[in-house]
């Protein structure tokens, strides 16, 4: 009896507050916009039969016809991919340095990587606004160094979005790579060097392949949230920065077009299913390999 209650409470909670809302989004994405409150025509009212009769894919057709949405999806994918790659480039040397640091430093270094993760995401993004703006510190520095004469427009560009994503998601990249490198047997590198590899070759042929799982896990952990990101493009990006999270927000809050916002959500989810399934597989394989 107790066991049933133990299962039922969290189960029921998630059914009502996670699964049902999801079905509602799906349903509304198939209904018509109306100038009413709530601003859509309910399609489920007359039972299942009526539901199927009234389903229309108008909103999805609308999404394919208006090239704003295509562009937003493609541009989100591009931004997420490129910034994942940049995060890897920045994060790998840090993780590598941590793994080679003396044993007694490592807990402190770990702590230093994790600490920003506990700090408000919004504040970390906001911190860059003051640095990247036209009168900001970076422009002041570059002018003082004599590298540029006029301030560069950095804030409200895609460049700022890349900086923001790399900065905020860096710990997600560092930690799994560090975990993989930490497990690595140092004598393998020695063996490679004894057998005539240069240090760079040993790194490329031994270290990188052995940290592959960390690289893959870190990349997914950056790519998946970056794809649906809203805060970074809306604070650091400009009007030209198209990201699907921002489009959904604007459809919903500014245009009040709920059905289209829901349709955008459904498609974003479909796009995310692929990387999520791949990530799960990778994690499972890794768990099995460890056993």
């Amino acid at each position: 009896m107790r066991r049933a209650a133990l299962i039922a409470v969290p189960y029921f909670w998630l059914l009502v507050l996670f699964l049902v809302p999801f079905i509602i989004v799906f349903k509304i994405s198939l209904s018509d916009a109306a100038l009413a409150i709530p601003p859509y025509t309910p399609t489920l009212r007359d039972g299942i039969a009526a539901m199927f009769a009234e389903f229309d894919f108008e909103n999805f057709v609308f999404l394919t016809e208006d090239d704003l949405y295509w562009k937003a999806y493609l541009s989100s994918l591009r931004i997420a991919l490129l910034s994942t790659f940049l995060t890897l480039l920045v994060g790998y040397p840090i993780a590598y340095g941590m793994a080679r640091a003396p044993e007694e430093w490592r807990p402190t270094l770990m702590m230093l990587v994790i600490l920003p993760f506990w700090t408000s995401f919004l504040i970390r993004v906001y911190a860059w606004m003051g640095i990247l703006s036209n009168e900001g510190l970076l422009n002041q520095l570059l002018i003082w160094l004599g590298l540029i004469g006029e301030p560069l427009q950095m804030l409200n560009t895609n460049f700022a979005v890349y900086v923001g994503i790399v900065y905020t998601y860096l710990p997600f990249m560092i930690l799994p790579i560090y975990a993989a490198l930490d497990r690595m047997d140092g004598s393998l590198i020695e063996a490679a060097e004894d057998l005539g590899c240069s240090r760079l070759q040993a790194f490329w042929l031994v270290t990188i392949p052995l940290s592959r799982n960390g690289i893959i896990a870190g990349s997914f952990l950056v790519f998946i949230p970056a794809l649906g990101e809203f805060v970074i493009p809306s604070l650091l990006g400009g009007s030209g920065t198209l990201m699907i999270g921002k489009v959904l927000w604007e459809e919903f809050f500014n245009n009040r077009d709920w059905p289209v916002a829901s349709a955008v959500a459904v498609i974003l989810l479909l796009i995310l299913v692929i990387p999520i399934v791949l990530f799960q597989r990778n994690q499972q394989k890794q768990a099995e390999a460890e056993q």
Binding site: L17, V20, P21, F22, I24, V25, I28, I224, P225, L227, G228, E229, F230, G245, L248, W249, F252, W258, A261, S262, A265, L268, L269, L272, I276, F279
Partner: peptide
Amino acid sequence: VMPEVITGLSLLLL
């Protein structure tokens, strides 16, 4: 792994 915009939107609709 759900994007926050989707979680938020779906709960609001509920």
